[in-house]
Amino acid sequence: MTRPPHLRLDRLPSPLDEILLVTDETGAVRALDFHDYMPRMGRLLRLHYGDLPPENGAAPAGVRAALNAYFEGALDALSAIAWATHGTAFQRAVWTALLNIPAGTTSTYAALATRIGKPAATRAVGAANGANPIAVLVPCHRLVGATGALTGYGGGLERKAWLLRHEGARP
């Protein structure tokens, strides 16, 4: 995947607090995180794009509208948002597999590892899940522990629980 020439940083209100949204010149989302996790997002952006800092600028209207629709209850609205990420082939496989966990359901790290053909890679799936630069769009919040308990979420467990409830899952 090639490095974009420019990144734009927008801020959107949400029921979970302000969202930081980074898009490229094509309108694809490159990062999405919560305002209180700006340092984490900055680290992921530097890891993936080097010394390319995002400049303040509005995300495309369609991206903003789809995120707002999702938070208003249109759970399928996120599928209309284009996104692009850097990362290892393994990370991208995990992130792509997360898209196959339907809203309103959860899966475990072990089940996802098996789904991608790496049943012994449960911890690696967890690490890839934690490195997901586009939370909410790539639904890393839908992974739970083997017992169904809520485990790690880059935006905090309270937000993970809220997202799962919002989607109709029982956290």
Rank of each mutant, 00 (worst) to 15 (best):
P4Y: 05
D10A: 15
S14R: 04
D17F: 04
E18M: 03
E18N: 04
I19W: 01
I19V: 15
V22E: 04
T23W: 08
A28Q: 06
H35E: 15
H35Q: 15
D36S: 10
Y37S: 13
P39D: 08
R43D: 08
L44G: 12
L47R: 14
G50R: 08
P53K: 03
P53F: 09
E55D: 12
N56I: 15
A59S: 07
P60A: 12
A61E: 15
G62F: 03
A65M: 06
A65L: 11
D76I: 04
A82V: 01
T88R: 03
A89Y: 07
A89R: 13
F90D: 04
Q91K: 10
A93W: 00
V94D: 01
W95S: 02
L98F: 03
L98Y: 06
G104A: 07
G104D: 06
T105G: 11
T106K: 08
T108N: 12
Y109I: 00
A110K: 12
A111F: 08
L112D: 04
R115F: 11
I116T: 07
K118C: 14
T122P: 03
A124M: 05
A124W: 11
A127M: 14
A131D: 05
N132K: 08
A135G: 12
V136F: 03
V138P: 08
P139Q: 09
R142D: 02
R142E: 01
V144Q: 07
T147R: 15
G148Q: 11
G152E: 02
Y153W: 07
G154S: 12
G155N: 03
L157C: 04
R159V: 11
R159N: 05
R159A: 10
A161P: 07
H166T: 02
A169E: 11
A169F: 01
R170D: 08
P171L: 09
